[in-house]
Design a protein around this nucleic acid. Structure first.
Ligand SMILES: NC(=O)c1ccc[n+]([C@@H]2O[C@H](COP(=O)([O-])OP(=O)(O)OC[C@H]3O[C@@H](n4cnc5c(N)ncnc54)[C@H](O)[C@@H]3O)[C@@H](O)[C@H]2O)c1
Ligand SMILES: NC(=O)c1ccc[n+]([C@@H]2O[C@H](COP(=O)([O-])OP(=O)(O)OC[C@H]3O[C@@H](n4cnc5c(N)ncnc54)[C@H](O)[C@@H]3O)[C@@H](O)[C@H]2O)c1
Lengths: 204, 204
DNA sequence: ATGTGCTTGAGTTCACATTCACAAGCAAAG
DNA sequence: CTTTGCTTGTGAATGTGAACTCAAGCACAT
């Protein structure tokens, strides 16, 4: 069947599916049924089948889904097939940890540029990448970088976001505890680690 | 009116409301209407009013909500009134950044203990806190620590979570890219920063 | 005291997401 | 070839949350 609209919640679950599938692939598992997969991703099996069915029918009845084709399908849907270059703004404590983190490549991201306003940091190397002056953010578009990770202090987050928008970026992962005002064409995801902790005591 | 069930989405929004209200309070704003508040939290105003109304009627018609009482109310609902001590497990790159981060106190959290398995780290100080051997995790309960932040490698995440559960913890913030199996009484929140990035290209 | 303007609180409607249930279908064995 | 057992894919039912609306109510001006 052809679905006209895909629930945003389905999209939100896909990266989690991808992560689990890559894990299964590394374990050389060839096929997985929605029932078994359910254990890995903590999503009920009818939900998993429905999610996949929005994009077509790529399972085999009686057998399950082939892990490698599923990985390819999800990569295709999420546009993660070719490596996406990302910029990191703010090489402080959190920014440095992130720039040295290798978990981004699971999703096809590669940190390709780092910017920081501090003179102590400009010109130094973090891993393989030389830290640049923020005015060079304007060159991101011509360097084919369309995604940015924002790890600057909250006070500077909006102005930096404005620069990024001006540079033609179309996605921002914001790690500061604040909302960013951006044009509709730009997608922002905000992760406030401390804020997430805030709900824990409620459930205790 | 007395509501029997509070939507989980409402609870999820409360820490964001709290953050914005604290910001307004610092700016010495005394009252805020749902319309104005809407701009700060990016939630539509009828939604905001409904969320608050689940817990009672603490607004004033024609005027809005008093910022300070709202802060107290939300702190009460989320059980954030008294300071909650938290433990950090894993003093690596990410763990160190987190332990030096002061944004947790907004929500009444204070990192009160740090554990790491590396001999190079045990006994050293991060900020004011001395890094301890993980076997001491068992003492958390008697030290009145009920919440833990998990920043160990993914391979060790489950075993560490088991130790934490054994120590009587009832909330875990998991920063590793994996699911944790825990008893129902323990609430786990997993934040996989890289995974969140995964949806960005889809929306480009 | 009365009117004006604005905001809350909540019942109702609407939209979206999850779950259910089962026919359809493949694989492997007999 | 047929049977058996399991799993998919999907319409329909259910559940959950968001949005809309508007009567009720407070503050302040007149
Ligand atoms: N450290 C954490 O664990 C943690 C956790 C959650 C959220 N955060 C958030 O992440 C952000 C960074 O935190 P941090 O602990 O790394 O802070 P930090 O002070 O260690 O680092 C901030 C870095 O940004 C640079 N910077 C400042 N203004 C800039 C600008 N306009 N352009 C480019 N670079 C600029 C500074 O030179 C510094 O190197 C903050 O918004 C913080 O609230 C941090
Ligand atoms: N660095 C990042 O930006 C980043 C981003 C997202 C997620 N993560 C996740 O956070 C976790 C930590 O990442 P990191 O970059 O800080 O790694 P890291 O290797 O720098 O630090 C891990 C620390 O955990 C300690 N450790 C290992 N096993 C332990 C155990 N059983 N008990 C106690 N301590 C133990 C190690 O000694 C080390 O100090 C990983 O799961 C990683 O996937 C990191």
């Amino acid at each position: 069947m052809r679905y006209s609209k895909i629930p945003s919640e389905t999209i939100r679950r896909l990266p989690g599916y991808l992560r689990a599938l890559i894990f299964l692939d590394e374990k050389s598992r060839e096929y997985v049924s929605s029932k078994v997969f359910s254990e890995y991703v903590h999503v009920k099996s009818p939900q998993i089948r429905k999610d996949f069915s929005y994009f077509g029918a790529f399972g085999t009845k009686g057998v399950g889904y082939k892990v490698t084709t599923l990985i390819e399908q999800i990569r295709g849907i999420l546009k993660l097939k070719e490596v996406q270059k990302a910029a990191l703004i703010g090489a402080g404590k959190l920014g440095t940890a992130i720039s040295l983190y290798d978990g981004f490549k699971t999703y096809g991201f590669e940190i390709a540029a780092i910017f920081d306003i501090s003179n102590d940091k400009i010109g130094t190397r973090i891993g393989e990448i030389v830290v640049e002056d923020p005015w060079k953010i304007a060159t991101l578009c011509e360097r084919n970088i369309r995604v940015a990770i924002l790890a600057v202090p909250a006070e500077s987050a909006q102005e930096t976001a404005d620069k990024l928008v001006g540079a033609g970026i179309n996605g921002i992962l914001n790690l500061s505890p604040c909302y960013l005002a951006v044009p509709k064409r730009v997608k922002v995801i905000t992760i406030d680690i401390a804020m997430e902790l805030g709900v824990l005591p409620y459930y205790s």
